[in-house]
Design a protein around this nucleic acid. Structure first.
Lengths: 166, 166
DNA sequence: CTAGTTGCAAAGCGTTTGCGTCGGC
DNA sequence: GCCGACGCAAACGCTTTGCAACTAG
């Protein structure tokens, strides 16, 4: 039943999350709150906004203030660990940067966000920048689409309201 | 001295601006303020934010409130006359929609914005959406670049501060 | 021990809105 | 004359910040 892997006190030393490791690599001071937030972000498979991170952190463990979440995501962004995104709707959303470059397709009917990558586009982007006399430093590509033959659109999703999804 | 056309007082009836014409086409009520804002936008060759429009409108003529500028650009956006853009830096910036689809290259050192269009990219965007099972409704492409062999970068421009440019 | 982090509440900033008045059509 | 636009100031939602207590290294 038991072999050689960690089976001492299961609660005592949870292994550092993916993002916590990145923090340590850059020499950031690791506090309890930062570890917690790092874990939430490591486990996230979507593009959470600050409130999402805050809620999940509270649910997962205990005391964090939303100010700390704001400070931490900003710190992580400044260290290249997170990327800030804006999909419309006012709030910033965050995307771990260690999953490679990708872009987003936003389903305009449901608000769902799909990630994708495209070699051909990467190349074209470099070419387009080159044509204008620039070398490419960064890029942002978002496609807005509608399912090819899909259910009726939900009109209330288009205008500046709450917006919540992936 | 008076015949049938208006050549009375040269100041009396300035010809409608490009954007004013679009407003009339869509049957929008044209007030003095809207005419003024439409003119500012018609004459703009950059991507002004609301404050820019407000300042230029004040300089050009007289009394407008910033609330009206906000209400008007929103109205124009909802009528497809303007497009709202976000180049980072918190404020929305506006782009007359009647100049055809184009994208932006932002010079990361100076903050200047260059417009460009690219057939090849348009086609690729449709293809990428298609691959994911979507039909393309809209798109957003921004390239961030640095002049191929240029002056030293201005580091203070990268972080969330004022930001002012094209 | 000390520089850096946290929580709290208040401030900031861009944007929206309620309301009484005014102005196009 | 009526419906809608305007100006003003207050409200709003997201984000940042000053301050005092605390904590990782």
């Amino acid at each position: 039943m038991d072999s050689r892997t960690r089976h001492r006190a299961a609660e005592q030393a949870p292994p550092p999350s993916r993002i916590e490791r990145l923090c340590i690599e850059r020499g950031l001071k690791m506090t309890g709150q930062r570890r917690l937030i790092a874990r939430v972000l490591s486990e996230a498979e979507d593009h959470p906004d600050v409130e999402d991170v805050y809620r999940r952190a509270l649910a997962l463990d205990s005391k964090v203030s939303i100010a700390t979440v704001y400070r931490t995501v900003r710190l992580l962004e400044e260290n290249g660990i997170l990327e800030r995104r804006d999909f419309g709707g006012g709030r910033a959303r965050y995307d771990p940067a260690d999953r490679g470059h990708h872009h987003h397709l936003i389903d305009v009917d449901t608000g769902k966000v799909i990630e994708f990558a495209d070699e051909e586009f990467e190349a074209l982007a470099r070419i387009m920048a080159g044509r204008l006399g620039f070398s490419l430093v960064g890029q942002r590509l978002e496609l807005f689409g509608r399912k090819a033959e899909a259910e009726p659109p939900r009109p209330e999703l288009r205008r500046r309201t709450k917006e919540k999804s992936s």
